[in-house]
């Protein structure tokens, strides 16, 4: 049984309209941020969702930890349907499921000391208070490399660098000993020289604490480094999904191919295939008919404009949504 199973997940955000527009028309436009996403993540795995801004990767992550409610679809965690949990049940779930946000300058309470920031979840869930809490927090701070822990315990977030703050966020997510963590672009706002350290820390803690990650990133090089499996999203849909090795060595979807060829490589000796796509990602309010990628796809034919391709299995652990891939 997979630890996480997502079936046909959807999230449509209504587009804000002015008062006048509301008076004059009844029609509401929706941004189809996530539009029918299904995947499974096994225990102990790093499952990455990669794609450009607006593809729905962050929304997918937030839906899974139930920070926002889905428009449709189901989320199963450990076999249990968590799609519509609320109140006490949802709180219990959060003990097992945590999230690390992108921006460590916004995700920590500036008025709380580091120790309180990290220890707060323990109090909320009634696990430890006072001395006991302090001890657990100190241990966790040591674990994420904020040493000496006693010094960091009493510091405020503004006294820390971006990299240190993100470690605090990691410590806060891990303090409840969850099974599953959504990491939403955890290194993209951190200084370049500190990114590798945070990645290594996350890998090390995953082994130590037996975690499963849903890793959300726009950076395919990072995805390649950390993932076991990867799903590529485009305009609210998964276009290709599979084992990391397969996706990077034998990508099938024309979008995956274009995306991979656009990733910069810090080595002037590497000569690569160049696939230059025209234009930019269309609006998710009125996405193109049929295959959403057909407006930019070099292989598009009539069927692509008419029919939406399904995500089909083409090999063990390799799924592609493209009419042109057999």
């Amino acid at each position: 049984m997979p630890l996480l199973k997502v079936v046909d997940l959807k999230k449509y955000f209504p587009v804000q309209r002015s008062f006048l527009e509301r008076l004059l028309s009844r029609k509401i436009d929706y941004v189809k941020a996530v539009d029918g996403v299904s995947f499974e993540a096994e225990k102990g795995e790093v499952f990455s969702i990669a794609g450009e801004s607006g593809c729905g990767k962050t929304t997918t992550g937030r839906l899974i930890v139930r920070l926002i409610d889905p428009t449709g679809g189901k989320i199963f965690f450990n076999g249990i349907d968590i799609t519509s949990l609320s109140g006490e049940e949802l709180r219990k779930l959060r003990k097992r499921m945590q999230i690390i946000f992108q921006n460590p300058y916004a995700s920590l309470n500036p008025r709380m000391k580091i120790g309180e920031n990290v220890g707060h979840p323990l109090e909320i869930h009634g696990i430890a208070y006072g001395r006991e809490k302090e001890k657990l927090v100190m241990e966790m701070l040591e674990k994420v490399g904020l040493q000496p822990a006693s010094k960091f315990y009493n510091a405020y977030p503004h006294e820390l660098s971006g990299g240190q703050r993100q470690r605090v966020a990691v410590a806060r997510a891990m303090i409840l000993k969850p099974d599953f963590i959504v990491a939403d672009e955890p290194i993209s706002m951190i200084d370049v020289s500190l990114r590798a350290r945070i990645l290594e820390l996350m890998i090390q803690l995953k082994e130590e604490l037996d975690l499963t990650y849903l890793f959300i990133t726009h950076d395919l090089a990072v995805a390649k480094y950390i993932s076991d499996k990867i799903a590529i999203m485009y305009l609210g849909k998964i276009v290709e999904m599979g084992e990391k090795e397969v996706i990077f060595s034998d990508p099938k979807h024309p979008y995956t191919n274009a995306l991979l060829s656009a990733v910069p490589v810090p080595d002037p000796n590497v000569k690569r295939k160049r696939i230059m796509l025209k234009g930019e990602v269309p609006s998710p309010i009125n996405p193109p008919s049929g295959c959403r990628f057909h407006t930019r796809c070099p292989l598009a034919t009539d069927i692509c404009r008419r029919e939406e391709p399904k995500l089909v299995k083409i090999d063990d652990n390799h799924f592609v949504a493209c009419h042109m891939v057999k």
Partner: peptide, 8 residues
């Protein structure tokens, strides 16, 4: 320290 997509 930079992940390189060309490396396996």
């Amino acid at each position: 320290s930079i992940p390189n997509i060309q490396h396996s």
